[in-house]
């Protein structure tokens, strides 16, 4: 459940932040969520990949669909791509990777900053 919530929150931030900040603010957003909400590094990365990938896929796909690929076809030609669909894939991949890595970094920072989670054994011995 926490995993779903994390994905959801990272998705919201990935959607909103770039309207106000640079495009790579998606990494900061995801990092922040993983810093605040606990989760394994593996899950944090995956969550980021899913959230960022989904949002960037959704946005590029809907724009492309609504506009009949009017511009993506021209940009694809400029980049020597045979089909504008590759641009949606590329956008999705960038959104996914950058958000995923941001999320992973946030998760790793959390493990440094919160000593309680550093080691379960230590925690037990103190109690």
């Amino acid at each position: 459940m926490k995993f779903i919530i994390k994905i959801f929150l990272m998705g919201i931030l990935s959607y909103l932040l770039p309207f106000y900040f640079s495009w790579w603010s998606i990494a900061l957003g995801a990092g922040l969520i993983s810093l605040l909400i606990r989760g394994s590094n593996f899950n944090s990365f995956n969550g980021g990949v899913i959230a960022g990938g989904l949002v960037w896929f959704y946005l590029s796909f809907t724009i492309d669909n609504a506009t009949n690929s009017i511009l993506s076809e021209k940009i694809a030609l400029l980049m020597n791509l045979t089909d504008s669909i590759w641009l949606i894939y590329a956008s999705t991949l960038i959104g996914a990777l950058v958000t995923g890595l941001g999320s992973l970094t946030g998760s790793l920072l959390r493990s440094i900053l919160s000593p309680k989670k550093m080691s379960r054994n230590e925690y037990v011995s103190y109690s």
Binding site: F19, S22, W23, W24, W56, I63, T67, L71, S72, V98
Partner: peptide, 26 residues
């Protein structure tokens, strides 16, 4: 992804659905 190479614009910025070329599709 945020860096231009020669004549290639920053690819992350260009492919961003918020700021990149997608926003010029009307």
């Amino acid at each position: 992804l945020n860096m231009p190479f020669d004549n290639i614009p920053p690819i992350g910025k260009l492919l961003s659905p918020h700021q990149g070329f997608w926003q010029n599709s009307e």
